[in-house]
Simulated scan of single mutants.
Amino acid sequence: MIDKNSPIPVYYQVKEEIKEKISKGIWKVNECIASERELVEQYEVSRMTVRQALGELVQEGILVREKGKGTFVCEPKVKQKDVMSFTDIIKKSGGELETEVLEFDLIDTPEELIDVLKSKKVYRINRMRKVNNECIANEIVHIPEKTCKNLSKEKLKGSLFKIIEENGYVIDHSESEITALIMDDYYKKIFNLSEVAPLIRTYGKTLDDKKNILFIEESIYRSDKYILEVNISRREGILK
Rank of each mutant, 00 (worst) to 15 (best):
2 I>P: 13
6 S>C: 12
6 S>K: 07
7 P>W: 01
8 I>G: 05
10 V>E: 13
13 Q>P: 04
18 I>T: 04
20 E>V: 12
22 I>F: 07
25 G>H: 03
25 G>T: 01
26 I>L: 05
27 W>T: 10
32 C>Y: 07
34 A>R: 14
34 A>F: 08
36 E>Y: 00
40 V>P: 01
41 E>K: 06
46 S>L: 10
47 R>N: 07
48 M>P: 06
50 V>D: 07
55 G>F: 12
56 E>L: 10
56 E>R: 07
58 V>Y: 13
61 G>D: 10
61 G>E: 02
73 V>S: 15
73 V>I: 10
74 C>K: 14
78 V>I: 15
80 Q>E: 12
82 D>I: 11
84 M>T: 14
91 K>D: 15
93 S>A: 15
94 G>P: 09
100 E>Y: 06
103 E>N: 12
103 E>T: 07
104 F>V: 02
105 D>M: 06
108 D>I: 01
109 T>R: 15
109 T>W: 13
110 P>T: 12
116 V>A: 07
116 V>W: 01
118 K>E: 14
125 I>R: 02
126 N>Y: 11
127 R>T: 00
135 C>L: 04
136 I>E: 11
140 I>H: 03
143 I>Q: 02
144 P>V: 13
147 T>E: 10
156 L>N: 13
157 K>P: 07
158 G>H: 15
161 F>K: 07
162 K>F: 06
165 E>T: 14
166 E>D: 15
166 E>H: 12
166 E>A: 02
168 G>W: 02
171 I>Y: 09
177 E>K: 03
177 E>D: 13
180 A>L: 09
180 A>M: 03
182 I>H: 03
184 D>S: 08
185 D>A: 09
188 K>P: 11
191 F>W: 05
191 F>A: 05
191 F>Y: 11
194 S>K: 14
195 E>F: 05
195 E>Q: 15
198 P>S: 14
201 R>L: 06
201 R>H: 13
202 T>V: 13
208 D>G: 02
210 K>G: 06
212 N>L: 06
216 I>V: 11
223 S>I: 00
224 D>Q: 05
225 K>P: 00
227 I>C: 12
228 L>R: 00
228 L>Q: 06
230 V>Q: 06
231 N>K: 12
232 I>D: 01
232 I>L: 12
233 S>M: 09
233 S>P: 08
239 L>D: 08
